[in-house]
């Protein structure tokens, strides 16, 4: 049986890791490849690299960075941020990324999911969905959370699965950086519709938040960033805690 995954997210800018709180106020947390190696040793199940400058400045992503990382570590990783077309996807996968995460580009062109899944397999295509809870429900945001779209969050999750995405990385912007826990309600709601795995993102602050996301939110994986980078939480200790609480965890 597949274990529940813990995924550190490394927001990358110029090959350095940074992490924002509510997507602003960046703090430098270190060298990305050094961190990747450290996380591999600590037992992280996967890594996600998000080029946070890419979708804002239209900068082409990180093929060289991906290549260096794939050279350094024997673990799966996803890369995202500003990936706009099938050629970007191909270059990143060929350089050694296992998956690409697509966000703004698939809102603008949903068929990109279908095209990418057909060419590279669904397992390589992660739909990254940023939602904010508003008075009229879950609203999908793009461009690093800066631009609202007309899309409703749950409907968009269902749509990306239909189009062939292999996984959803669901970031709850209203929880991100708060350290008050993941959005259990939304996680649990989408699980009744979806067959593809869901990565919970946004709001982790303590061990129990992860346990709640896995048990009540039925998430397949939990993602966190600053919490891990600044040494506040050890992945080893977190995984031991989850295992002690009866979850199927790779220790």
């Amino acid at each position: 049986m597949t274990t529940k995954r813990i995924i550190p997210c490394l927001d990358v800018k110029d090959g350095r890791v940074v992490k924002g709180t509510n997507f602003v106020n960046l703090r430098d947390a270190g060298d990305a490849i050094e961190l990747a190696e450290k996380y591999s040793q600590e037992g992280a199940d996967e890594l996600v690299f998000l080029d946070i400058t890419a979708s804002i400045e239209k900068r082409k992503t990180l093929v060289e960075f991906v290549r260096e990382t794939a050279r350094a570590v024997s673990m799966p990783f996803t890369v995202g941020g500003g990936i706009s077309d099938i050629y970007d996807i191909e270059n990143l996968l060929r350089a050694g990324a296992d998956k690409v995460s697509l966000n703004t580009s698939i809102v603008k062109n949903p068929q990109l999911i279908a095209e990418a899944a057909k060419n590279f397999g669904s397992q390589a295509i992660v739909a990254a969905i940023d939602v904010n809870k508003t008075a009229d429900g879950y609203r999908v945001f793009i461009k690093g959370g800066r631009e609202a779209t007309p899309l409703e969050g749950i409907a968009w999750c269902r749509r990306v699965e239909e189009l062939g995405a292999g996984e959803i990385l669901l970031t709850s912007m209203h929880c991100d950086g708060t350290r008050n826990g993941y959005d259990i309600e939304m996680l649990s709601e989408i699980q009744s519709f979806l067959q593809i795995p869901v990565i919970a993102s946004g709001g982790a602050g303590e061990f129990k938040h992860f346990l709640d996301a896995f048990v009540e939110g039925k998430a397949d994986a939990c993602l966190a960033a600053g919490l891990f980078h600044f040494g506040e939480m050890s992945i080893k200790d977190l995984k031991q805690y989850l295992s002690n609480n009866g979850l199927n965890i790779r220790i």
Binding site: T2, T3, G166, I196, P197, R250
Partner: peptide
């Protein structure tokens, strides 16, 4: 589906391919 993540495997017959691999070792599937 996809089956994505780390799973342990059960050896059904001995093979040198898995020599020295501890029981219950995890591998990455996608």
């Amino acid at each position: 589906i996809p089956n994505m993540g780390w799973s342990s495997i059960t050896l059904e017959s001995s093979s040198r391919l898995f020599e020295g691999i501890p029981a219950g070792a995890y591998f990455y599937f996608a």
